[in-house]
Computed example of a mutant assay.
Amino acid sequence: METSGSLGHGCTMRLQRFLARAGVASRRGSENLMTAGRVRVNGRVVTELGSKVDPERDVVSVDGRVYALFDAHGYLMLNKPSGYVTTMSDPQGRPCVASLVPVDRFPGLFPVGRLDADTTGLLLFTTNGDVANRLLHPSCHVWKHYLALVRGVPGPLELERLRRGVVLDDGAALPAEASVLSQGDPRVSSVCPGGIPRSCAVVGLRIREGRKHQVKRMLKHVGHEVLRLHRDQFGPLRLEGVDEGAWRLLEPGEVGMLEELGQKEAAHAR
């Protein structure tokens, strides 16, 4: 393998792009794997980010596991239960979402984004690193909808503050769509199976960012502590017909919408 350029035969691509397309990690995550010395090409450790490979000829492995490009990528949604961390492995031995999805059936499967350990709901998985990277890029704001059980009942002024965009400690949040759900709304059962407790409310919040603990921080900023949090939408995907802890493959139409969304967001970012 030639680490400073193309291999001189076939169709070559940058190694981090190959890793992303093979579903190993996002483009940035693949670069981190390379610089950490965890990637080998034809048995040799490769750390130089400018390195290129020929997908048809070179053998690429990460931590000893060989990867190849997929003819068809895998896409699925998980209804994540509480208590699971959004990682494929955890050095502390905590329960991971990897144990809930078919990683043997889809080598290279990984989650697109994160949910806190105590947050439940829709978590997208794919083997398509290119699409995942585009959907997660900071400049590409994909709509996500959450249901939050909060202490107290937000009034019109507090909801309006969320709609205008509150200022958090790491900068102003983009305007959100916010509403208080009624007791009879069927979505309430996602966070309150027994109904809304007294002196509490369920808030529907639709945001276009994905900062750490963002929904919890936004609602706390307007005076309402989040007691439970559930995500029921991610982009065009809705969490329907999937029991807690279970998963389902995306329908072809859902995959098409997701890939089209990634292409649109990438074009918008340029």
Rank of each mutant, 00 (worst) to 15 (best):
P236Q: 12
R114S: 05
E259I: 10
R114N: 03
D90F: 00
G241A: 09
A148E: 02
V112E: 07
L249E: 15
S189G: 02
S99F: 05
A269E: 09
L69M: 11
M257E: 15
A132W: 08
P102K: 10
H9M: 05
L78A: 01
R151K: 15
V24Q: 07
G253T: 05
R114E: 10
Q183L: 07
H224P: 10
S4F: 13
V222P: 06
A178L: 10
G210Y: 06
V222G: 11
R238V: 13
R21Y: 12
P81F: 13
R28E: 08
M257Y: 05
F106C: 11
P175K: 06
H137M: 11
D54T: 12
H9Y: 11
R231S: 01
V142F: 08
P91N: 10
H230Q: 10
R94N: 13
Y146G: 00
A25G: 07
S190A: 15
V41N: 11
T119L: 07
T119M: 09
G184C: 03
P95L: 05
H137K: 05
R114C: 09
L69A: 07
D54N: 15
H213M: 03
F70Y: 11
V24C: 12
L227C: 15
N42M: 13
H137E: 05
V53Q: 02
L136D: 09
L229G: 04
T126V: 07
Q233N: 06
W247P: 00
L15D: 10
R217G: 11
V41R: 09
A98C: 04
V153Q: 13
P95T: 11
R27C: 12
L227M: 15
H213Q: 15
R187I: 01
V24W: 04
L136K: 04
R134N: 14
V215E: 08
W247H: 15
A22Q: 12
P107I: 07
R217D: 11
R114V: 08
V222N: 07
D90M: 00
W247V: 03
M34R: 09
F125I: 01
L123I: 08
I207T: 01
Y146S: 00
H230G: 08
R14S: 00
L168W: 02
D232M: 05
M257I: 00
P193Q: 06
S82D: 13
T119H: 08
N42Q: 09
P193D: 08
R27W: 09
P175N: 05
V153P: 01
K216V: 11
A267G: 04
P107Y: 09
M218H: 02
L174R: 13
T87Y: 05
T47R: 14
G29E: 03
V103K: 12
G43R: 13
M1N: 09
G184E: 14
M1W: 06
A246H: 14
L122H: 04
L205R: 01
G64W: 09
R40E: 14
G194R: 12
D90N: 01
W143Y: 11
R57E: 14
G43A: 05
T12G: 14
R164P: 00
K80S: 06
R161L: 15
C192T: 01
V167E: 13
G74H: 01
Y146H: 00
E225Y: 07
L237Q: 05
L124C: 04
N42G: 12
